[in-house]
Design a binder for these strands. Structure first.
Lengths: 238, 238
DNA sequence: TCTATGAGTATACATCGTACGCACCGGCTT
DNA sequence: AAGCCGGTGCGTACGATGTATACTCATAGA
């Protein structure tokens, strides 16, 4: 069996199939968007496609392969910035990725985290643009890649945390942050009441930006970009 | 039903049970360490504990609850630094977490990513120590927490990526990085051969630190910590 | 018109999480 | 001492899931 991606491009038009890897992935994405990742069932998928449960196996060797296809499909929909100013580019990249993840929250929950990191075509494009954006500063390739990896790691970690928090909230039917904190009281008041976490308790009392998830994401991002700026700054001319 | 953590501490010693939430979690962790997360089956777990499949349900209402217990158990084993120098403390925190994740790679694969972000007691301890470490600089609580979140996000993202890469490798039986790249050729040579990714192709040719995963982790971490240092530096006295 | 190819189908199975009710044991009340 | 009773662990059973295997049948090329 050749590579999944290779097979994809060589769409053999010899027959006129009603199904395709693409259509399967699209259906899977729409199911996951609506009802979460665990709602993706070969049977449900087939029903959605108006087809028998086993039909998909003509185009996909595994359920996991469907997940890979889903990842690549949504990455393909991300508009990847292609800019001059590296910092603007990275900010756009980060915010774009965040929007993508918030739209498809299952991205953070893929059981095979592998899939999220495998080199799918669209992920490569992403790396490509980023590397191009910082090409100006003459860095060795290792450092250049480390910058890409760092930003990517932050994005991944921050969005995962945000999605986790959001899901925890909506799953329990909270809308406002205050409501959430009231709801958490059950678990949390007890924990905080133990007096073991004074700093954290202070945060819950005094913080102002607790519910401003965008502010949190952007602030963290600026921390990261500041650090990278140091690396990119040419040390000479100052 | 009261909170899971509450129930844990109020271990009612009225009876002499052979089982306990703790023992269940330990067994689950050892299974996951050995054979991966998907090897955790209620039946397998019971067999490992020398007990009938349904026995665990006396102590746990869900399989998901077992996952939560596992997370907290291993977080509890992490030695969380408690230092003076914030940068040393954070470095130690990051390297410790990395070691923990590499030891329990399933941490990055928890299907309910929620579990990884829920406020378990040991995770709170972690936040507590970190906040204490940067208490010196007088920051508002929001910024202080954003620093914690940023480092945490980087750690989470970077370790996930590293684990994903490692699993992809071992899963296909590669040991050396060169072997891995040779193995990836199938998928990758074709992709890179398309000429769509010149920057990335240059990296695969010229990079030197491709296989030094520790260097990659630490370098990214330094980028992040540099950015935070800017925030912590008192702007006055220079 | 015959036939081979390949798309979609039908049936079946092992394995999973877990609902439900039972058997049993030790400490309490009387 | 006798009997109840809460709680521990067990047995059975069920519906859902991923997928192996063998099929039907339409169509394109001869």
């Amino acid at each position: 069996m050749t590579s999944l991606w290779e097979r994809l491009e060589q769409a053999d038009n010899s027959a006129r199939p009603s199904l395709s890897a693409r259509r399967i992935a699209e259906a899977a994405v729409s199911i996951a968007d609506a009802d979460g990742l665990e709602a993706i069932t070969m049977r449900r998928l087939a029903a959605e496609l108006g087809v028998a449960p086993m039909a998909a196996y003509r185009y996909v060797s595994d359920k996991n392969e469907i997940l890979e296809l889903m990842v690549d499909l949504v990455y393909g929909q991300a508009d990847i910035p292609q800019g001059e100013d590296w910092r603007q580019t990275m900010r756009a990249l980060a915010l774009g990725m965040r929007a993508l993840v918030l739209k498809h929250t299952w991205l953070t929950q893929l059981p095979a985290a592998r899939a999220a990191f495998e080199l799918t075509p669209n992920r490569l494009t992403l790396a490509e643009r980023t590397l191009a954006a910082i090409r100006g500063a003459d860095l060795d390739v290792d450092t250049a890649m480390s910058i890409f990896r760092t930003v990517t790691a932050y994005i991944h970690g921050a969005t995962s945390a945000e999605v986790g928090l959001r899901q925890l909230s909506t799953e329990r039917g909270w809308v406002s942050g205050d409501e959430a904190r009231a709801g958490l009281s059950g678990q949390m008041t007890w924990l905080l009441g133990t007096g073991r976490y004074p700093e954290f308790a202070r945060y819950t009392r005094e913080a102002v930006r607790k519910d401003d998830l965008l502010w949190q994401f952007e602030t963290g991002l600026e921390h990261v970009l500041d650090g990278i700026a140091l690396r990119l700054a040419t040390p000479g001319p100052g």
